[in-house]
Design a protein around this nucleic acid. Sequence first.
RNA 1: GAGAGCGUAGCUCAGUUGGUUAGAGCGACAGUUUGUGGCACUGUAGGUCGUGGGUUCGAGACCCAUCGUUCUCCCCA
Length: 460
Amino acid sequence: MNKPTIPQGTRDFNAATIYKRNYILNTIRNAFQLYGFEALETPAMENIDTLMGKYGDEGDKLIFKILNNGLDNPAKQAEVTAAFQKVLEGKTNKQITERALRYDLTIPFARYVAMNYGQLTFPFKRYQMQPVWRADRPQKGRYREFYQCDADIVGSNAMINEVELAHLYAHVFNMLNLPVTIKINNRKILAALADMCGGAEKLTDITIAIDKLDKIGIDKVKEELQQRNLTATQIETISEFLKIQGTNEEKLNTLSNSIGNHPSGKEGISDLQFILAQQTTGNPLPLEIDVTLARGLNYYTGTIFEVKAIGYNIGSIGGGGRYDNLTGLFGLPNVPGVGISFGVDRIYDVLEGLDLFPKQLIKCSTVLFFNLGKDESNRSFTLLQTLRAQNISGELYHEPAKLDKQFKYAEKKGIPLVVIIGSKELAENTCTVKQLATGQQVTFTQSDLLNYIATLESGL
RNA sequence: GAGAGCGUAGCUCAGUUGGUUAGAGCGACAGUUUGUGGCACUGUAGGUCGUGGGUUCGAGACCCAUCGUUCUCCCCA
């Protein structure tokens, strides 16, 4: 028999990993609740129509489709064969697949809002922390199953929402002691640029090219723009636009000069100004205007966010933005929203890489009772249960064995305290407690055990 | 979707221009030590060399295919 394996890009998580992941998840969840978001969970799978066409052509290819059941039904053989022929031509087909795994949390959320519009109080603020699946080729910081943690506010155009989300980002990364840059931009600015360079249909070409600025440099970007059929004048306009540098304020000034007269550009600039102005005193957010920030997801229309860790290269660890009409895709027009997402798995990699996880996250048994015989272990078990009743975790060694072996077990599992009840202690109604870290050992009556451990535990 | 690297013991790896019986460290288990762990010493177990084919007198090593994995590009969290 072959060794068992797990699907490409998925992982098992052992105890130590889970404690660290929970540290991140708890931090994020607490922040979500602190900022007034309510919880939501949606199914792992959605109807395929809900997902297809929402993430662009690339996205459609990366959606995991679920094969329908009953394809082997002989009565349907002809239809199924015909349907499969269409799949071979590159079209998904409901005869073959009518469900798919969740690709992100935003679209299922929009679907939920559209379905439950009447029951919700607006602005509706929800958070959601669940795994998503993408059929990408795995590599560093990229998995096929990973957690996203989203907070969205729908039913409000107010820019105060962007401010809230920027602070929420800063709050979480501050709690995690993780230095980050929160990059912000506005699609309206990019739209204005596109409009001044040949029209909205150029937007995609322009954003794809300028997004690479810090990777390939201005000359290569110009080349790419040329290949994408932009004229010399247009390329010149773009390269002027890309020259902006300096502080956020300086960037805003430069932007005003280049696209400030364009109505959409003007709006975008004032949106950015609003967010940057709402800083709490003394503790500025790590916000940085980045006009090359575009983000691939099709539905963003206003503010866009992207979070990069400082000092560890792994792509973005968070992203989000404003969308004017997400629920319109599901028949509910005029519900604007804005949201952000945390990439837990990448945040984990960064914290691990920078050694930023707090020590002492690992929770296991506080006490190990040695097993030194039948009567002895019966007494130990009774005492163990009284500790557990007071919320002190512990376990009894599973069988009588040499002390040596039981000590080693405690040590390997990181159990800080052992309680020894052998024939002598049993007869005298005493117990011996040893702290493994210091080797300190005390013997006293069994009725004092609970108190003794309770006072010790706070210092462990 | 395009490209590159790597698959040898549970883990990390060594293995010479192709040459006899494939090694080390760590870990596991046992013992030195049947009421006191970490240290030390001794011993034991554990390998279809990812899989399938090919070249060769001879393949862990060379060739082809395949699977797995890691990384890069694309795109993303």
